[in-house]
Amino acid sequence: MKSDIVLAGVGGQGILSIAATIGMAAVDKNLHLKQAEVHGMSQRGGDVQSHLRVSSKPIASDLIPRGKADIILSVEPMESLRYLPYLSKKGWLVTNTTPFVNIPNYPEMEEVMAKIAEQTNHIAIDAEKIAVEVATKRSSNIVMLGAASPFIDIEMSALEEGLRKIFERKSDAVVESNINALRAGRAATEVILASRN
């Protein structure tokens, strides 16, 4: 198996927790993993990305080559478009629809959504709304992980185990809440896929 994922968002939106969950699951499954993160200045409200590569074979580069990503997983709609050059022709763009507006010239939302809809393989869900329904607003990043999970060749149970390991230090309630978020995100994608068939 091989999954090359570009994680995208704005500094402080929790994309590293998504990466950590997949990373934990990958290590448990004895898969190879490389994950390039962004630390430092960009974390102050700038655009941030992380390249996450999981494979059953050894991985050479820490960075995903352009045109090779299997998934763009974005917790912010405009940010999902910033990394299109990385997405392979068969790849999936999976994004949250709630914008993070911290700049004066944020584009019109309708135009952003129209661009996302133009992509052959795309999933756009309101992760914040789902997160508030099944968990808390803070879990919207994990909702997005769930939404992308059908395209990642790692079982749900392994991802849930990853969440357990990451959040068990906080409390059982936090673990359960994140697992609910993960499942709800996956369900949202499954509904969309079913409606298209």
Binding site: V10, S42, D47, R82, E108, E111
Partner: peptide, 10 residues
């Protein structure tokens, strides 16, 4: 990258 994507400086 679509033209509508604008920079988001720190």
């Amino acid at each position: 990258v679509p033209d509508l994507v604008v920079g988001r400086p720190p």
